[in-house]
Amino acid sequence: MTDAFDLLLWAVLPYLTLVVLVGGLVWRYRHDRFGWTTRSSQLHESRLLRIGSPLFHFGLLFVIGGHVAGLLVPASVTRWLGVHDEMYHLVSFTAGGLAGAGTVVGLGVLLYRRWRTPAVRRATSGDDRLMYPLLAATVLLGMTATVLTRSIDYDYRATVSPWFRSILLLDPDPSLMSAVPLPYRLHALFAMALFALWPFSRLVHAFSAPVHYLIRPYIVYRTRDHRLASRRARPGWDDT
């Protein structure tokens, strides 16, 4: 029974999440490019945003970098590179802890701002109300797991990381996750829920990070839309 349940959680669910994430992004891009935005509320409130938003976003970028390193790079590689396990964990705990703390504090400031500023509160949509608790839970569980690693000396690189790679290699091994401490498993489950919600929430703006700006010419010229502005009316029943 446990095996079937593990199979569902750690082999089926990840792929379902991936399908929803990729499919959702394609759907959103094709059908709702107009809705694809940061939905910034800086116009309403700037003072708290200028503290919370960079703290959260930069913290999160570091956290993501840490996840990439921790999940994708096998322990054997870092050992081969001459990085002692003890040192690896010290560095990852310090850097990850700091970045995570920044993320948590930043998110706290942003949530407080959203709650307390009437105009920002009013601009909060339905999917925001689902997304923010999910995001906060995922981040907090991640922090719990990080602190836990330190206190019980748990090596996630022997379990969680190989499982994550097994998913990406299309050879899922759910048994790796069966003995993992609860905070890790909850963190992974909440993260999957967050990824599934991602394309349908404001988080989608992360996928349009404008790195292209660094290399494009400053002034963009475009020719007129081939159709003139006075264009054919749409058929009356067309509900698209």
């Binding site: 963009v220 475009r222 020719t223 007129r224």
Partner: peptide, 14 residues
């Protein structure tokens, strides 16, 4: 236009 990170703003050539 030069400030737009997305390249969404443009000047029409015509």
């Amino acid at each position: 236009v030069a400030s737009c990170p997305s390249g969404a703003m443009y000047k029409r050539t015509e």
